[in-house]
């Protein structure tokens, strides 16, 4: 069993969590071109290496950020969403 440390609930079985994908910036919907919008909706970096992602602990519906290595399957860090400041969007 693989464990993930929830910033709110501590170490839990990874099956209690859902991954919601890499943190990335939403373009301004009213200003974005169709091309930009399609890129935002569909394209993905799909990085082989360290990524920063949204995760949710489903029993408590607590959303947080995680840094993970997609090659070694290691969870490097988990932390709550910073109250202000960037959450580290990848382009």
């Amino acid at each position: 069993m693989k464990l993930m440390t929830c910033p709110l609930n501590g170490p839990r079985n990874i099956t209690e969590f859902q991954c919601h994908g890499e943190v990335h910036r939403q373009p301004e919907p009213s200003g974005a071109s169709d091309h930009e919008w399609a890129e935002y909706v569909w394209m993905s970096n799909n990085t082989a290496g360290v990524v920063r992602e949204w995760w949710c602990h489903t029993p408590t519906n607590f959303w947080f950020l995680a840094e993970r290595n997609t090659v070694t399957d290691e969870i490097l860090a988990t932390f709550p969403v910073p109250a202000d400041g960037p959450s580290g969007e990848a382009s």
Binding site: T15, Q18, C19, G21, N46, A48, V51, R68, T70, V71, T72, D73
Partner: peptide, 8 residues
Amino acid sequence: PYELYNTR
């Protein structure tokens, strides 16, 4: 359930 480049 999550993206990975690992065949474990």
